[in-house]
Amino acid sequence: MVATLESTPENATHWSRSKMAERSGLSKSTVGRIWKAFSIKPHRTDGFKLSNDPFFVEKVYDIVGLYLNPPESAVVLSVDEKSQVQALSRSQPAFPMMPGMPEKRTHDYARHGTTSLFAALNVVDGTVIASTHRKHRAVEFKKFLAKIDAQVPEELDVHIVCDNYGTHKSPTIVSWLARHPRFTMHFTPTYSSWINQVERLFAEVTRELLQRSDHRSVQTLEKDLRNWVKGWNENPKPFIWTKTAEEILESLGRLLKRINGAGH
């Protein structure tokens, strides 16, 4: 385990079972069992980028507070745009799944245009307000805010959690918000999309619809996106947030210590 975590093999970036077996004198199967027991997977890697937001701590407390203790007489909406969703048609028909053989699809395809899915996820009940637009400028975001305003009962305040994309802070949006005082914007820290719950919704629509989609026009893609959201709202599933702000900050603190300890 020490060798796995603190060294690399000669002429390689990470350990394999065969290289570690040669290094340790153990069998490859034994190396595999030890790694499995400690949940170590040297062949895998994930990406990350730490936030450089000077108000990171304050924003984490603000947004997590909304998730764990939503204000009364208000709705909390996690908002973002899934931009550049492509209408793709595969070059050949797919081979259907059969016993012992997964579905097979060609890797090449034709592009037929793009659209953007605007979504507002109610963090309490899991319902979604959504729209599709061919562009995602300030004018489209203002239209989406107007749609939210029309669909949320007027007696409720509206708290919007969104990222720092320029259109969300443009003069057009600032002016619109000034005329709609029941709306309050809560901006996520930079490089912290993980704190915006709507990203989980986008992961679901990607997995269930877009990953294997076959659309020969933007219109059919947009229709399927609207139908997917409609189906979601028939049986909405909120994503239950469990970590407190303190737990998140402690976890990041441990990560920073590990990074500094590795000499980066």
Rank of each mutant, 00 (worst) to 15 (best):
S7Q: 10
T8K: 11
E10M: 05
N11S: 14
A12Y: 06
R17L: 08
M20A: 07
M20Y: 12
A21C: 04
S24G: 05
S27I: 09
S27V: 03
T30F: 06
V31I: 15
V31S: 07
G32R: 05
I34A: 02
I40P: 04
F55S: 14
F56E: 06
L66M: 02
L68H: 06
N69M: 05
P70K: 02
E72V: 11
L77H: 00
L77D: 00
S89G: 09
S89H: 14
S91Q: 14
S91L: 13
Q92C: 03
F95W: 09
P96V: 09
G100S: 11
P102R: 12
H107C: 13
A110L: 13
H112A: 08
T114Q: 15
A119V: 12
A119R: 02
L121G: 03
V123W: 01
D125E: 12
G126P: 02
A130F: 12
A130C: 12
T132W: 02
T132D: 01
R134N: 11
K135I: 02
R137N: 11
V139Y: 04
F141C: 04
K142C: 08
F144C: 05
L145D: 01
A146G: 09
P153A: 12
P153Q: 09
E155T: 11
V161A: 07
H168I: 00
K169P: 05
S170C: 01
V174D: 14
S175F: 07
W176K: 10
Y191T: 06
L201A: 07
R207G: 08
L209H: 11
Q211K: 15
S213F: 01
V218Y: 09
L221M: 00
N227F: 06
K230V: 07
W232L: 14
E234W: 00
I240S: 10
W241A: 11
E247N: 00
L249E: 13
L252N: 07
G253E: 14
R254S: 13
K257E: 15
G263D: 01
H264M: 06
H264S: 10
